[in-house]
Design a protein around this nucleic acid. Structure first.
Lengths: 272, 272
DNA sequence: CGTGGCCGTCCCGCCCAACGGAACGGTCGC
DNA sequence: GCGACCGTTCCGTTGGGCGGGACGGCCACG
């Protein structure tokens, strides 16, 4: 029997998988299948029909039917005229996750300050593996379009928030990132390891990081770390149209907010 | 072994299995148990230890151990020094739920407008059964404390947002609510069905509803409906200290925002 | 230093519930 | 009317979920 991820550092990589020779007929356990069903839904899509779910998950139709019915009873899915949608129960659970519950609660007022001072789009991001996950984002009517989405992922090296998170994440992770080819989202994405290393050092020196159209064309941003007891827990950023990037004005603003948030978080119950 | 924590509320009631005469030894399927594990977590609590999870769910320790391990591999839980926490994967999934993804995206700029005009706490709520679920909430440093939480529930009849949602929900639901005793959160909560009916009519007439310390002491609010094709989908509100409730100033603001949001949502792809 | 409580982990045989191929009935559009 | 595709239901098979129990580590006791 497989003992499966001893230390379980990285992620997923469920060792189950099909033993090479066999075209495994049944693989996976029930929970895995249920989650696979939920993950079949993507943003900006509507309801999914039973057959489509079956296609995406590779599960037999009868199985999907049974599981989807159970998930619906649990509130994780809901029926729509045109198939299934993710249910409100999933939203309720998601809001209980500490990254959301604690961090956002503390950060929101400072994000509001930043928004009011600049009227630009504000991000709050945390690190998961080699990605940044956006914990929150606020924008007004005029806010610039960004590839980010609350709950969405982007590579650490392609965004301001991500580079800041990486800069303070420790040498081990930095080495790991530099060792493999750097992902590229635009023509401006940093793909030279040496240049990235320099930039990370510069971030640690100044407490501010930049993204110059590295995640999306015409989009730049200024980011700053949120540290608790010397440990990085998140990063804040302001996103602006590339031609309006004014470090002299934005850097102090974002730095001030991140320092103030760091201070608030440092004296908190903090059950980690 | 006692028959699991009752949890007598409506919920589930899966008609399958459990022939009436038998004291079902194990009831519930795998997915149900997994979700029960996730729902054992409550806001403002830290990590839960294996034994505590076992206590709360009524599941044997060995079972909890196995399930928790699987959920961790799936990213729905994560290990902490002091036990388990809800995992970031759950947050990712929660952010894909349509109520969050679509509604919030559209509503946020209008909520920002309201915040900037008043600097009070702004809520966005949707209805689920007889509760309001808060889809979003923004507040600044000075924002008043509220019993609400993003992803949290309160009874429809005890909040401004809730009463507005109820007023437009259709006579069937209104009758259902009026038929049973009305919940009470404070001494000011409306518990007289006749008075509530009047108030709902007044809301439909004016497009604005009030909460006068009915959800929490010293907290009042002004709410207004978001309608798409005549159907209510959400409600917006401004919460203020009770002694500062100024309908003449706040009602037009919240009404304007809700109408503008209604208009935006009415011309959208809207895959329901 | 023994002891007893509580913890997380692991083992393993029992057996039931998950499984899915297949058949069915409804609803379109040609 | 016919075929394509849909969601639903049935039911025999079996693999994996199940959990009692054992184990070893870690305290706070006496």
């Amino acid at each position: 029997m497989q003992r499966n991820n001893g230390a379980g550092n990285a992620d997923a990589d469920r060792s189950t998988t099909v033993p090479p020779g066999r075209p495994g007929p049944t693989r996976g356990n029930v929970l895995d299948r249920g989650v696979r069903l939920l993950r079949a839904f993507r943003p900006s899509e509507g309801a999914l029909r039973l057959t489509e779910l079956s296609r995406r998950t590779g599960l037999p139709k009868a199985t999907v039917h049974r599981l989807a019915e159970q998930l619906t009873a649990l509130g994780l899915l809901q029926r729509a005229p045109a198939g299934f949608l993710l249910g409100i129960g999933l939203f309720e659970l998601g809001e209980l996750v500490p990254v959301k519950l604690r961090l956002r609660e503390a950060a929101l007022p400072f994000m509001q300050d930043l928004y009011e001072a600049t009227h630009e789009t504000i991000h709050l991001g945390v690190r998961d593996g080699l990605d940044v996950i956006y914990a929150d984002k606020i924008r007004g009517h005029a806010g610039i379009d960004t590839p980010s989405r609350v709950g969405g992922r982007l590579p650490l090296t392609c965004t301001g928030v991500g580079k800041v998170l990486l800069a303070y994440a420790g040498q081990g992770l930095i080495d790991e990132v530099l060792a493999q080819p750097l992902p590229r989202l635009t023509a401006h994405s940093v793909t030279d390891p040496g240049r990235l290393a320099d930039e990370l050092a510069q971030i640690r020196y100044s407490g501010v990081g930049y993204d110059r159209q590295e995640a999306a064309p015409r989009l730049s941003c200024v980011a700053s770390p949120v540290l608790v007891h010397g440990q990085i827990v998140a990063a804040l950023s302001i996103s602006v149209p590339a031609h309006q990037l004014q470090p002299a004005r934005l850097a102090p603003a974002v730095r001030t907010a991140s320092l103030a948030l760091s201070r608030v978080l440092s004296r908190a119950p903090d059950n980690h």
